[in-house]
């Protein structure tokens, strides 16, 4: 398993502290091996802990109070929950694209150049090159090259989402976390974004949360099924969909539970 350079999760438990006495356990004893340079899809009914699992991969829930974590998440041979681990460094390696596209309150250009400028000292030429390269990667360059200095909020929602992806990959992460990134989009924009993900998987390890079975089938290489905070089944996409071993998985795939 060590030669797997993706993400290794061992005995991960996550609790939310409630105001009442008992904590709510969001994830029970998760053990996963997420493969490199593939699209791993996490599916499951709502409330099953998909987003919690996703955000645990770059420790984003530590910005909220009252979350307790134990267990290990190992990326690049390093335990990211080790107290000495540096969050900014981790998050540079593990980018997130959120459900709703949220442009930073600046221009289109600055949205893409923001991350690279923070991490490295860049002159105008270098940042221009990064912006152009990144926007071309997400197929947005042709649409916006004339108006790079306009507010990013003026773009359409679909364009904003592709801009979010551009912003995430502008700092060359190893892993991209995608939290239901098409759920706020219209069908045509969704399709564009899905194509984009497929083309990006050669360079990045992608972890995708989705509650749409068809999307999981279209995109996923490796599929994880979560139910009530537990991993019920995991495996390659074809295997899991064609011959699910667990009863709950069968029911979910048939659409009996959702």
């Amino acid at each position: 398993m060590q030669e797997n350079n993706g993400i290794v999760i061992r005995n991960l438990n996550i609790y939310y502290k409630n105001n009442s006495k008992n904590d709510f356990t969001a994830l029970h004893n998760i053990n996963l091996d997420i493969p490199k340079n593939q699209i791993t899809a996490i599916m499951g009914p709502s409330g099953s802990g998909k987003t919690t699992l996703l955000k645990s991969l770059n420790r984003l829930h530590s910005i909220n109070n009252g979350v307790k974590v134990n267990g290990q998440v190992i990326i690049d041979g390093e335990d990211i929950y080790h107290p000495m681990h540096l969050l900014p460094e981790l998050r540079r390696k593990v980018g997130l694209i959120s459900q709703k596209p949220i442009p930073l309150p600046t221009s289109i250009y600055e949205n893409v150049a923001y991350g690279p400028k923070i991490h490295n000292r860049l002159n105008r030429k270098e940042s221009d090159a990064i912006v152009e390269k990144t926007l071309k990667k997400v197929n947005l360059w042709e649409e916006v090259k004339e108006r790079l200095n306009q507010p990013a909020a003026d773009l359409s929602v679909g364009q904003q989402q592709r801009l979010s992806i551009a912003r995430a990959i502008s700092i060359n992460p190893d892993i991209l976390l995608c939290d239901e990134i098409t759920s706020a989009l219209d069908p045509i924009s969704s399709e564009k974004v899905e194509h984009l993900l497929l083309s990006l998987k050669e360079e990045y390890t992608i972890v995708l949360v989705s509650h749409m079975l068809r999307q999981v089938k279209r995109l996923g290489d490796y599929v994880i099924f979560l139910y009530m905070g537990k991993v019920i089944e995991q495996g390659n996409m074809g295997e899991l969909f064609n011959s699910p071993r667990n009863k709950i998985t069968q029911q979910y795939i048939k659409g009996v539970i959702s």
Partner: peptide
């Protein structure tokens, strides 16, 4: 599993 805690 033995892992390093911190970036080098």
């Amino acid at each position: 599993m033995k892992v390093k805690g911190r970036s080098k």
